[in-house]
């Protein structure tokens, strides 16, 4: 009985902390913005578009903070909003041409320079950078859904069920996308090995 009470108390504390976390928008942005930006940038492959999606995501989250029931983590909730925004953006075919014209590519050299030199030698660092670029290039070859799901699984460490909840896809669809993404990336890494 004591254990049950303890668990419910813990859940209640977690829920109230999540709700209070949502009230503090600046803290929310500080904590989740880099991860959200990474996810959206590599999903849509356009950093400028990703910036606006992430801004919109925080605005929506702040405006609908009262509807957050606390049945999932704030992170999952935010990624769910971001997923909806990406989906809406991809559905809007109206400005497809202008989007293609205005689309900015991810600067790979800038990104490679971000990999800090925690490696023991310059050769190891170079190898790590090369591998990271290979994964990025392999991601570019995937479909948007495969990219999104791969990033949620391997960058955000979400379970397939959480990904299913976040994206609104069926669990089997999530698994199928995940398998295909893994096979494609594995092949690319194997070829360039």
């Amino acid at each position: 009985m004591q254990i049950a009470i303890g668990t419910s108390e813990i859940c209640l504390t977690a829920e109230t902390s999540s709700v209070s976390e949502l009230q503090e928008i600046e803290g929310l942005i500080r904590i989740y913005r880099p991860r959200l930006l990474r996810f959206v940038t590599f999903s849509v492959r356009d950093p400028d578009l990703a910036e606006s999606i992430v801004q919109d995501c925080f605005l929506r989250a702040y405006n609908s903070r009262d509807s957050f029931r606390g049945d999932c983590t704030v992170s999952t909730w935010l990624f769910g909003i971001a997923n909806n925004l990406i989906r809406d953006q991809l559905r809007t075919r109206k400005f497809q041409f202008w989007r293609k014209v205005r689309a900015t590519a991810i600067d790979i050299t800038e990104m490679v320079s971000c990999l800090s030199s925690s490696a023991s030698s310059p050769e190891t660092l170079l190898l790590q950078q090369e591998r990271a670029v290979q994964v990025k290039e392999a991601l570019d070859g995937l479909s948007v859904n495969q990219r999104r799901i791969f990033l949620l699984r391997f960058s955000e460490d979400m379970s397939p069920q959480e990904i299913s909840d976040s994206t609104g896809m069926a669990l089997n669809t999530v698994k199928t996308h995940l398998y295909r993404a893994l096979v494609a990336i594995g092949k690319q890494l194997g070829e360039t090995k």
Binding site: P34, Q129, A132, S155
Partner: peptide
């Protein structure tokens, strides 16, 4: 190799998005 490559990518992309 796969795991380390994805880890490298994750750390690189996270630092990049933090900077941005």
């Amino acid at each position: 190799l796969f795991r380390s490559s994805v880890e490298n990518f994750n750390s690189m992309s996270l630092v990049w998005s933090e900077k941005r």
